[in-house]
Write a protein that binds this DNA or RNA. Structure first.
Lengths: 253, 253
DNA sequence: CAGCAGACATGTCTTTGTTAATTGCCGCCG
DNA sequence: CGGCGGCAATTAACAAAGACATGTCTGCTG
């Protein structure tokens, strides 16, 4: 039964409804020494990997960044090449807290479209936290949201059927894409291949194909070249047994 | 190429090698209004759930706590009862950032042994961050570690075979148990049932049983009543194709 | 034009799930 | 004290889901 403490200047940020670190504006008070912007990636390019030259330059530990625009995904692989996609990255998402040390192949990040990044020095995090009140919250908020997404993903891969999994994934990515507001394209296109879907859901590419065809035959989706068009998000959510689409926005912290 | 900034009082915490929030000592500077200790749970008891009376009292949002002693696990369920265990909680682990709102059944936590908790008011987090420099780091560190564990878990469920999954899970829990130093029991016992294993790995209980027997016949483990004894951790890691056992301790942030 | 990659298709084989029945242990209660 | 019921672990027999090997077709690209 703790009593409500008085609000402070930090507390003004609560509840935190919007996604932080989304646009450049959030980085106004940062000095050039604290961050740098990186762009120019093409689709299918490795953004960060053990040994990658792009983010590993200078410090081998600089692997902390937010996505400012575009799509990407994070994955791990086993020695024999089996790959598991862990989550998809849309503008505002933070990557690198998971820790990546050269040679240990913790995880890698690959782009699905041209992307723009904002890169921080990982080992500078203590100073960043101190110099930018509120950043600790933003990071906690983002980590928290990512964990919720991973949770749902794990539930999906572990306990849902192939059809449910596929429907869930697509409905989920559709929702995220809507939230971010990819205004650009009028149709709802998700820039992934069936191989990505397979590696996300823990299925073979063949079975994934069969499953997607079933969804397509029910007019829930339509598959394009390297992209999925969502025809009926609600129908997908229903197939997936997922109520997240209608989930009300709510404060996380 | 940012220059190295001078160390500050906050920076002294880096690199952070040990698990923070592990013993009572870490909570010395906290006031009684900021946290409370809860104990008295028995094995198999719900620690936190939508509607639970234990942690929901007062604020419906108090679901933020660390485990001070004992074992527990976090899980989600689908409407029809299928359950997926998300991760296991050992002393020092933090729960509740994922967000849990009454009625939405986000996730639940159940104990595997008697546990002691340290509970924070979730909506008081802003003040906590402000009043306790370093706490933001500890939380980030913990969230980061949890995400790495979830990543590996997802890889496991998505891409490893039943035998690999089981071997990985047990080797992993063995390692964590060792790190925490459950000194109490001389033998290395993990207090879970085969049903827990099944729900963690996304397998049926029957198949899990066959898989575990195979591991037992290879003298890697021995199954007791509601507990798993680890005979050969290295052998398990080898079966799992996992090199995490020998992983050197390293700073995360 | 050749080469290649992705989508689509099919048949066979392996892995895993389902159902159901058996045993042993333990705590509860008459 | 002893029967009863429940849970964990186990096993068998069968069904289903999904993996794998293979091949075709199409559109793109050099």
């Amino acid at each position: 039964m703790s009593t409500a403490l008085p609000n402070t200047t930090v507390a003004r940020r609560v509840p935190c409804e919007a996604c932080p670190l989304r646009d450049n504006e959030h980085f106004r008070d940062f000095t050039p020494a604290e961050l740098k912007f990186v762009s120019g990636f093409k689709r299918g390019e490795l953004v960060s990997e053990a040994g990658s030259m792009i983010l590993a330059e200078g410090s081998h530990n600089a692997q902390l960044f937010t996505l400012l625009s575009g799509w990407a995904f994070r994955y791990k692989t086993l020695e024999d090449g089996r790959r598991q996609i862990l989550n998809y990255l849309l503008p505002g998402d933070l990557v690198g807290l998971q820790g990546s040390v050269i040679g240990e192949m913790e995880h890698s990040v690959e782009s699905l479209s041209p992307v723009v990044l904002c890169v921080f020095q990982r080992d500078n995090l203590p100073n960043l936290f101190e110099n930018h009140p509120g950043l600790a919250f933003d990071v906690t908020w983002l980590a928290s949201r990512e964990e919720r997404m991973l949770d749902e993903n794990l539930l999906s891969v572990g306990r849902r059927s192939a059809t449910e999994r596929a429907a869930y994934l697509i409905a989920f990515l559709y929702q995220r894409s809507e939230q971010v507001g990819q205004g650009r394209s009028s149709r709802h296109l998700i820039p992934i291949t069936q191989q990505h879907v397979a590696d996300t859901l823990g299925l073979s590419i063949v079975h994934t194909n069969k499953t997607l065809r079933k969804l397509a035959s029910r007019e829930l989706i339509r598959w394009h070249d390297r992209a999925c068009e969502v025809l009926d998000p609600k129908g997908l959510a229903e197939v997936a047994g997922w109520d997240g689409l209608s989930e009300s926005k709510r404060p996380l912290i």
